[in-house]
Design a protein around this nucleic acid. Structure first.
Length: 927
RNA sequence: GCCUAGGUGGUGGAACUGGUAGACACGCAGGACUUAAAAUCCUGUUCGCCUUAAAGCGAGUGCGGGUUCGAUUCCCGCCCUAGGUACCA
């Protein structure tokens, strides 16, 4: 029989499903191995060929690990809460749950077509109440916890209450808001219930806080940064301003140091670790208080360069800083208010990105320099961000470039503070030389100055050494419908948890998925949605990252109704051994997940400090768009004539995207093009060599660019095994690359050639039991070792090439020996499981046993060589090759090479200056 | 702007630890088989120069420099592209 991939693939997919071949138990004699993919958001567009890349890699790896004797957990599910379904609901009125269900069905069909070895009995969906019940439960634990910096872990708020009751707030070691009260145990007892709750909220890990959001007054809603383009809403183009709002937040900053330390213990790509380090942004410095000149208040700044304090010539506050309205003088008020208005229109990213234009406003007030007592003016500027540090900086123009530009722009003094500083053109941030113009530290070096200053500041109570993190607490509320409801109601304006046995708090029905007329989130539309019939529920929902911050535990025990996963399951599976996903999650999902994981560990629910031991980023598959060129007439209007790429320069044209699915190797299928749209029915073409050649460009894969390639179409034409191998063949897993179906023929041909090894000229199955030759064994053992090495270092593309080489060799050797082919089937099976299952059974093995057989043992004896073809180079340029025995040592090789007449011809009578011999590698002759 | 990664033939890529640049494929060109097509197989294919041919010469891994007997690989500077930048997931 020919290679009938359609029949074979359907057959084995059904076999795996009905026999539950990949169902895995939470107990086994084998060592465990947990392979996890970042689960997908089921979008309406379905899977495109970019999505399965990581899944195929992890599937190859999982299948390989099974062959290596591991009990492999390899699950899949859906991150099914999210904005797109809600946008669609807004437009169509369709309930997001229905859209989501449809999309998931489609995803599942598409995933099934590819032949993954997932254990589908463990499937999860974050939007399913049986799942989000536990997301809400974790929220409740966070609400009920505070971070004890003494024990360095989260502890129960009951514990905190006990401390307050017995000792008051004095000496409390906890991460909390800045405005906490100081009180004695006695005072605490006299607090009203309301005062107590207000105070406790300042310590809870899930708490309410005022934070800035993109507010679109016209739409009456908060927008994601994604939905804001150039300061206006993407939908409708309405103005967007920055507005403060009470929001649920997560005190992730409490975990900053542990999140940083943990990075040293995981096996992640270094760039990703670096991104997380930068995100956490630990900086060691000092906080310094600058008293206002009138003595009414003080401004606290954080600086990493306390040594430059004598170079301070002004202070800069973020425009949002609380003190700004208070200290602004009447003379300056109009100017300051105007500046604040301007700032509100800019997003934080715009403010950071624009370093060219220097803007700011003078408040009219002055602060006192804490050491010299001199007056320094207080300005506001948008390069200072309210959310970072204290929202105020001491400006040192001689040492900081932004301060330098600011000082130049507004004619503020620039004070030189180090003898080596060169500040004619720009700021000089070096820490070398000795200090000048710096009273206490004149003549000292950097190290000496820092320690002296810190002790002086501490002594005088105006500053102290401080560690600052760039990372901010994570906003946890979304003014959206399609997310987990927050299990909180309000009593007397204070948040209270619902009872645990009332979980899940179900998402209520609403008439529309829009904010209410009064600007409340969509949940405000739910009728009769009140706790115990009277209390207001929290109307915002949880963010997208809530459900994905713990999901790997749910897979361990996905049907458990008593706990998010049983203790036994958690103890057995421990951490994820291999996690594959995109690097776009570097600082979002991966940081929040680590945070929740650490929290769950603190409260004794899980064992691991770090949830993902090894992590691999798969690159993004970009689209490869094709273009046709429409000829323009003399008025610049489009005609119905299209000119081929090579001739387009002779005409005035516009490029139009054309569906890549009607283009083959950049040649347009003319009939399909005419049929693609009514207006193209009569299209005329100017061809080159009888063909229409399309232009191409690499862009994001998206519907609007007509460059989306659906895996189903590829599978229909070539089969799942071809798709799997081709995705791996495309290039290194970690690298981003454009999808181009052009090369797929080669992989498909390979599989057919592989199939033919097992069949005679008339397509009958035919293998022999003869003893293999040395050459055949060499070919087999090369591939056994190569695939082993490649999979262990996640270099899947090079394996595919090697398979091709191996099959080419065996074809040349006319090898159809069972002793070779049976092992080759096992080695190839992680990549192309369907064809291998079929051949495995044809070879006389038990159906389904291939997945759990053993990977062949590599024997190096078959690869030993006694000769090597040495490349002989002259001055590093390879000129010829010489076959020499590998038993020869350096000097013998040199003699043999120099004795060669071709070498002598190249030398042309000259004596070589030097001969470099690397045994088994190369000979280089320097002339 | 900042953080991170990448740039090698017409195309995807290989070269794993500083040692033969372009493996393996696609495409293209030529050929075999076939009534024909599909399928399959064979040969060639980095560019330029020279040559009837064999062979030979020169350049070449984004650009400019450096280290080295030898650099796609290491160092310095620059250009371009992609991802992230806290409410897309």
């Amino acid at each position: 029989m020919d290679y009938q991939f359609k029949t074979i693939e359907k057959k084995w997919q059904q076999f795996w499903a009905s026999n539950q071949t990949f169902k895995v138990n939470n107990t086994s004699d084998k060592p465990k191995y947990y392979v996890l993919d970042m689960f997908p958001y089921p979008s309406g567009a379905g899977l495109h060929v970019g999505h399965p890349l990581g899944y195929i890699a992890s599937d190859v790896f999982s299948r390989y690990k099974r062959l290596r004797g591991y009990n492999v957990l390899h699950p899949m599910g859906y991150d099914s809460f999210g904005l797109p379904a809600e946008q669609y609901a807004i437009q169509t009125g369709q309930h997001p749950a229905i859209t989501t269900e449809t999309n998931i069905k489609r995803y599942r069909e598409q995933l099934d077509n590819i032949g993954f070895s997932f254990d589908w009995s463990r499937e999860i969906r974050t939007s399913d109440p049986s799942y989000y019940k536990w997301t809400q439960w974790i929220f409740m634990q966070l609400f009920n916890s505070f971070y004890n910096t003494d024990s360095d872990k989260a502890e129960s708020v009951d514990q905190l209450i006990w401390i307050f009751e017995t000792k008051g707030s004095k000496g409390i070691e906890a991460v909390c808001d800045e405005d906490v009260l100081e009180f004695t145990a006695e005072e605490w007892h006299h607090f009203s219930e309301e005062q107590k709750e207000t105070e406790l909220l300042k310590y809870r890990l899930a708490y309410l806080r005022e934070s800035t959001v993109n507010w679109c007054p016209a739409l009456g809603t908060v927008l994601a940064n994604d939905e804001v383009k150039d300061g206006v809403s993407e939908r409708g183009g309405y103005p967007v301003i920055q507005k403060k709002m009470m929001q649920w937040s997560m005190r992730i900053t409490a975990y900053a140091e542990r999140l940083l330390q943990g990075l040293d213990t995981v096996d992640w790509p270094e760039p990703l670790v670096e991104m997380q380090r930068n995100w956490i942004g630990k900086s060691i410095g000092a906080s310094v208080k600058f008293a206002l000149a009138d003595g009414s208040d003080s401004i606290e700044v954080f600086t990493t360069r306390v040594d430059t304090i004598y170079g301070v010539s002004f202070l800069v506050l973020a425009p949002e800083h609380d003190l700004v309205p208070i200290i602004t003088t009447n003379v300056q008020r109009a100017q300051v208010e105007n500046y604040i208005e301007q700032t509100k229109k800019k997003s934080e990213r715009d403010r950071m990105a624009d370093t060219k234009t220097v803007t700011g406003a003078f408040t009219g007030s002055y602060a006192m320099h804490p050491l010299t007592g001199k007056q320094v003016p207080i300005w506001i500027a948008d390069y200072v961000l309210a959310g970072y540090g204290t929202g105020a900086v001491m400006a040192v123009p001689s040492g900081d470039q932004r301060d330098y530009l600011f000082a130049k722009q507004f004619h503020l003094p620039i004070i030189k503070i180090l003898d080596i500083q060169e500040i004619d053109e720009e700021a000089d941030s070096r820490k070398e030389g000795v200090y000048i113009n710096s009273e206490l530290i004149n003549g000292l070096s950097y190290q000496e100055a820092v320690s002296k200053l810190v002790s002086v500041l501490e002594e005088r109570g105006i500053g102290k050494a401080k560690v600052n993190y760039r990372m901010r607490d994570a906003i946890f509320g979304r003014q959206r419908y399609w997310g987990e409801p927050v299990p909180v109601y309000f009593k007397d304006g204070l948040p209270k948890l619902i009872k645990e046995n009332e979980l899940p708090l179900l998402l209520p029905e609403v008439d529309k998925y829009l904010p209410t007329e009064s600007g409340e989130p969509p949940l405000g539309r739910a009728t009769n949605w009140k706790y115990q019939g009277g209390y207001e529920y929290e109307l915002s929902t949880m963010p997208g990252w809530a459900g994905s911050s713990w999901y790997w535990y749910r897979y361990m025990d996905s049907h458990n109704s008593e706990a998010f996963a049983s203790k036994e399951a958690i103890d057995y599976w421990q951490a994820v051994d291999l996690y594959i996903g995109g690097s776009e999650h570097a600082t979002g999902h991966l940081l929040y997940s680590r945070f929740w994981n650490k929290f769950l560990k603190d409260i004794g629910k899980v064992k691991e400090e770090e949830p993902f031991q090894k992590l691999i980023n798969q690159g993004m598959i970009q689209g490869r768009s094709n273009f046709v060129y429409r000829v323009l007439d003399e008025h610049g209007a489009g005609t119905n004539t299209f000119v081929s790429l090579g001739l387009k320069d002779q005409y005035k044209t516009t490029a139009l995207h054309v569906d890549v699915n009607i283009v083959n190797n950049d040649i347009l299928h003319l009939e399909k093009f005419r049929l693609s749209r009514p207006e193209y029915a009569e299209a005329k073409f100017i061809l080159e060599d009888g063909k229409y050649v399309c232009g191409h460009e690499v862009e994001k894969m998206s519907k609007s660019k007509f460059n989306v390639v659906n895996p189903d179409d590829i599978i229909e034409q070539y089969g799942a095994d071809t798709l799997r191998m081709y995705e791996m063949f495309l290039g290194p897993l970690e690298q981003s690359k454009p999808w181009n179906t052009n090369g797929i023929e080669g992989v498909h041909k390979f599989l057919r050639k592989f199939w033919r090894l097992f069949h005679d000229a008339s397509s009958n199955f035919s293998v022999s039991d003869e003893i293999p030759t040395k050459a055949e064994l060499k070919s087999l053992h090369k591939i056994i070792r190569k695939v082993e090495d490649d999979i262990e270092r996640f270099s899947f593309n090079t394996s595919v090439s090697s398979f091709m080489i191996c099959v080419n060799e065996l074809t040349d050797l006319r090898c159809n020996k069972r002793a070779i082919l049976q092992d080759l089937v096992i080695v190839l099976s992680p990549y192309a499981p369907h064809i291998c299952e079929e051949l495995w059974v044809l070879l006389g093995n038990e159906p389904g046993s291939l997945s759990y057989t053993s990977y062949p043992v590599f024997n190096p004896d078959y690869l030993i060589e006694d000769e090597f073809e040495y490349p002989i180079s002259f001055n590093g340029k390879m000129r010829l090759k010489l076959n020499l025995s590998l038993s020869l040592e350096g000097i013998e090789i040199e003699q043999a090479v120099l004795a060669n007449e071709d070498v002598q011809r190249y030398l042309d009578g000259k004596t070589p200056k030097k001969v470099i011999v690397v045994k088994g590698k190369i000979v280089n002759i320097v002339v």
